[in-house]
Design a protein around this nucleic acid. Structure first.
Length: 273
DNA sequence: TACCAGGACGTGC
DNA sequence: GCACGTCATGGT
């Protein structure tokens, strides 16, 4: 089935390439997007962003289509911060995805002290090796592996995929989730969720913020990585050095809009706006 | 060659 | 509690 949505506040390029998601490929005049075991073909035509998939409900929620981004962009512009205004106005079609929770946990554990092209490659290799083989009208692909598939794999599978020293984290976390599930992560406040995520070996404050934001849609989260640190020093005249305190500073400034604004700033900085 | 990339852990104090 | 060295890997 097909979903069509006005492209003013839904730009597929910005939404996919802003760094929140690692599983997508260029395809024809658009993109193939993968989430968990699902796949969609997304492209733009005649002022509409079109989503073709066999699970419209899933991708309607995935792309966060039930949310007013005009209001969010308006709030971002109201701060009159040059980098933020440039990014929010130029990338107002950037949407925060609702991604699969377990997939986000593993993906952002891989992301630590790493760069985006490598992260994508490592995840792709792990999916190819351990994920279920799927077919779609656009060709075959591999689902993101279940936690039991990850837990059953030898740690060498992760190192051979290029995960480096993070291989043990992936084994440890997948075994824990395979045993106990992630039910205890549900229905928590942002603070409670982040605190619980920190009990997984390999998840620190930054990854916990990313998982809270990109998987649990805790929009009062503000992940601070090397790029956001640069933003803080160069565009906010920041003086703090502790990343957790920088997170606090931004969340105190932007409240429930923190996660959206973080993404505008991160993407805008990487685009050198 | 040294430094960087969506950082976290273990140790020592 | 905090500072610091270390942890794979590939690109520049």
């Amino acid at each position: 089935m097909r979903i069509d949505y006005n492209c003013e506040y839904f730009n597929i390029k910005d939404t996919l390439e802003c760094g929140q998601v690692f599983r997508f490929n260029h395809y024809k005049d658009g993109y193939l997007v993968y989430s968990a075991d699902k796949c969609a073909y997304v492209h733009t035509d005649g002022g509409k962003t079109l989503i073709d998939s066999d699970d419209g409900d899933y991708f309607y929620r995935y792309f966060d289509l039930d949310r007013d981004y005009g209001k969010i962009v308006g709030a971002a512009l109201s701060y009159e911060i040059p980098l933020l205004s440039k990014s929010a106005s130029l990338c107002k079609g950037l949407r925060l995805l609702n991604q699969n929770k377990e997939e986000m946990i593993y993906s952002f554990v891989i992301s630590q002290n790493n760069n985006i092209p490598r992260i994508k490659g490592i995840i792709n290799k792990i999916c190819t090796r351990l994920g279920e083989r799927m077919s779609s009208p656009y060709g075959e692909y591999y689902a993101f592996p279940s936690s039991s598939a990850l837990a059953g794999a030898d740690v060498s599978v992760f190192s051979e995929a290029g995960a480096g020293y993070r291989d043990g984290y992936l084994s440890s976390i997948s075994k824990r989730i395979c045993d106990e599930g992630i039910a205890k992560l549900e229905n928590l406040s942002t603070e409670e969720l982040k605190k619980e995520l920190l009990t997984y070996k390999g998840i620190g404050p930054k990854v916990a913020d990313c998982v809270a934001l990109f998987a649990f849609k805790k929009t009062d989260s503000f992940p601070v990585d090397t790029w956001i640190e640069k933003v803080y020093f160069e565009d906010f005249n920041g003086k703090l050095k502790d990343r957790k305190k920088i997170t606090e500073y931004f969340v105190n400034s932007f409240g429930e809009y923190s996660g959206f604004i973080q993404q505008y700033l991160f993407y805008g900085k990487r685009l050198n706006l």
